[in-house]
């Protein structure tokens, strides 16, 4: 479990995070959502230790990050897996080398054992026969799978994903979302996903934190988000033209059915 308490972060005179508190639960997919500029990325980078909040604490299963020694922080980092927005695969390495990189860097495992583990996780993310391909030979969806495989190869306790569906078609996005959720449950890890993709929100939002202008505006899950009357949430959820049109057409169909029923009754 990751717990953040009253974190504040500024860049110059601009306060990006304004006293946010939240809990990200283990075994669940926790989503941070909000419009661009709401502070999602800064919050995720604060959780990763890339940014240091001026105020507040971040604790990983009771370990307060700012109070850890250098060695403890290094150890904690080996417990973290990260899936970047653009996958961030190392161009000079093939799939097998990319996935095996954390094991090679942080464990004393023999190359045979590393290879077995790499094949195991590649199998888990449904990527077979791609071991010797380079990132530029893979599709966007395949690159995301490799990035997920690399993130989980070292059995992390915490998995962070920065807009994992960015640049993917809707069908592949669903597959990636499902994969992340399955892995979260299977490995019992704390997963935090930064997204503004509504399909992901509805599909895997077991816990959702909605940020607006650096403040936590709302907290709930994928069922509650459709029921809430919070104005900011409603505007966010139904902001796309697609949703508006679907909503309008559904309302029109509903009206037609009612008028037909009235005619029949008469």
């Amino acid at each position: 479990m990751i717990e953040i308490k009253d974190i504040e972060k500024s860049f110059g005179d601009t306060k990006v995070l304004k006293g946010i508190s939240a809990t990200f639960e283990t075994g669940k997919t926790n989503l941070i959502i909000g419009r661009s500029g709401s502070g999602k990325t800064v919050m995720l980078k604060s959780l990763l230790g890339i940014h240091t909040p001026e105020v507040g604490t971040i604790s990983f299963d009771g370990r307060i990050y700012s109070e850890l020694s250098k060695d403890e922080k290094r150890k904690l980092r080996t417990e973290i897996g990260m899936v970047f927005q653009g996958s961030a695969l190392f161009d000079s390495m093939n799939v097998e080398e990319n996935v095996g990189f954390p094991l090679k860097m942080f464990t004393d495992k023999k190359s045979r054992v590393i290879k077995e583990r790499v094949n195991e996780v590649l199998d888990r993310v449904n990527l077979k026969d791609a071991n010797h391909k380079f990132p530029n030979e893979l599709s966007g969806g395949m690159q995301k799978r490799v990035a997920i495989a690399r993130a989980i190869v070292n059995n992390p306790k915490y998995l962070f994903c920065d807009e994992p569906n960015s640049g993917l078609d809707p069908e592949t996005s669903i597959l990636i979302d499902e994969l992340i959720q399955e892995i979260t449950r299977e490995y019992d890890i704390t997963t935090v996903i930064n997204t503004h993709d509504m399909n992901s929100v509805l599909q895997i939002g077991e816990k959702i934190i909605f940020l607006k202008n650096g403040i936590k505006e709302w907290e709930g899950n994928n069922e509650q988000i459709l029921e809430t009357r919070n104005k900011s949430i409603v505007e966010f959820v139904y902001s796309s033209d697609l949703f508006k049109k679907v909503r309008e057409s559904l309302l029109e169909e509903d009206d037609e059915e009612r008028s037909n029923d009235l005619h029949l009754n008469k």
Binding site: L48, G49, I50, R74, R77, T78, I80, M82, F84, Q85, G86, A88, L89, F90, D91, F101, P102, M105, F106
Partner: peptide, 17 residues
């Protein structure tokens, strides 16, 4: 520079490298 732009350096740092 390309590694910086494509977040590969961030990936290294997050891993603790």
């Amino acid at each position: 520079g390309t590694m910086r732009v494509t977040e590969q350096i961030d990936a290294l740092e997050v891993m603790g490298v």
